[in-house]
Design a protein around this nucleic acid. Structure first.
Lengths: 231, 231
DNA sequence: CGCATTATTGAAGGAGTTCAACCTTGGTGG
DNA sequence: CCACCAAGGTTGAACTCCTTCAATAATGCG
């Protein structure tokens, strides 16, 4: 499979990879379309591949023993995911589902060691990616420990508007379908509470929202709210 | 500074490093004693070194904008910490404080890239370390999202008894001083709630505790409690 | 011994969940 | 083409788990 190097080579993950290495690497890749609602892999499945998201948006969820679901990560274009192999796991710890129609590249897990060893700089890049994720997780833990729900939701929405925002005339639209339930699973609350909060915000002109849609109208005031300053 | 290779070489981090590489690497290390209550580094400080804990136990805390503290990690002997440099940060995101008298090794941040590139296998090892931390963080997020306080505390105590437990005649003693406040900061609750929970457990014979001490007397029933089965 | 730190416990209050009922939206198939 | 219906969303009311406030007790260090 021949994949165009120019687009992919510009991604941070491959930043410092030589053209030759990159070509070689891409020769082993298989592209795949994933329609909205379909999964790339499921929790507990054998981790036969690792992936890169080229286009679209994925939600990575985990289900607890008693059936509760949590969104542990949203995958944005250009990010690696499903690299369970790197953690010496044989199965995927979560489920990756397309929040919107997406395109992914996949490589067989076996070549991960090669992937890391062939280009030493790349290892550093992978570590950085994980480091960022780790920091994000810690931020979330901190927020969940100390902040009330409204601020957590504000943070989550702002974050999404940054990483997945489409600028429109009346504000920043989150560029993939996201339900109240999704937001609840990202912030550790219930869809009811999220609904109430968004309704209140809408009244105050902070956001506008519809079915699976959120538009940030006043990110400035929302930021202040997230920071804990009442406005 | 000459440090004995035999002890350190057996640590998972250096698992597959050659003796020569290891010696070279240890030549750049500085050991340091850290007394209980002292800090190795503080949140916001320039990240001039990265570290390995040889002996003792550290708490890594973060303080939020509004002064609330959270324990993001407990560092156990043999683990790397303070490798902010790997995440391309110039400062430490948290504070590392000795929960008990400890010994650490430190290396100048500058040699991290060398550390990673010189021994390719080591990079994989570092990634695994971070991967484990990431999984742990996700577990915590999942727990905080879905479980009530008592189960979270049970999990935290069990985890500590596994990673820092000293077997005694009457149960498993957590081998470093840990206050109600600490447990609260690890589980996202208040010291009051922790105190009430531990008191209740003590009555039921699950644990025995004193000032900064916790002893697990019935890890089996505690596990069941953590799993959500009422006993 | 005295004092600071840590821990216990009661009472009151509140933020958020749970339960329940109802409303909207948009896709689909008759 | 539009009627139907499942999925998503809203909103009220009751309840509860946990926090907050407060006061008191135990522990151990200097």
């Amino acid at each position: 499979m021949k994949i165009d190097r120019t687009i992919i080579g510009s991604l941070p993950v491959f930043e410092r990879m030589s053209d030759a290495d990159l070509d070689n690497f891409l020769d082993h890749a298989s592209p795949r379309r994933v329609l909205q609602g379909e999964t790339v892999f499921k929790q507990g499945q054998q981790a036969e591949s690792f992936y890169l998201l080229l286009d679209g948006r994925l939600k990575v969820t985990q289900v607890t023993g008693d059936g509760q679901q949590v969104i542990v990560r949203v995958v944005h274009p250009g990010e690696l995911f499903g690299f369970a192999i790197a953690l010496q796991r044989t199965d995927y710890p979560g489920t990756a589902m397309a929040a919107t129609d997406s395109v992914v590249l996949s490589w067989p897990s076996e070549i991960w060691p090669q992937f890391v060893e062939q280009n030493r700089r790349l290892a550093a890049s992978a570590i950085q990616t994980m480091g960022r994720q780790l920091e994000e997780a810690h931020t979330r833990i901190r927020e969940m420990s100390t902040q009330e729900v409204e601020r957590r939701v504000a943070h989550a929405i702002l974050r999404l508007s940054l990483l997945a925002g489409r600028k429109e005339e009346s504000g920043i639209q989150i560029a993939f379908p996201i339900s109240r339930q999704d937001i609840a699973e990202m912030t550790g609350t219930t869809l009811h509470t999220v609904s109430r909060i968004l309704s209140a915000w809408e009244t105050r002109g902070l956001v506008a929202c519809g079915r699976q849609k959120v538009l940030v109208r006043d990110s400035c005031r929302l930021s202040r709210l997230a920071a804990g300053q009442q406005d």
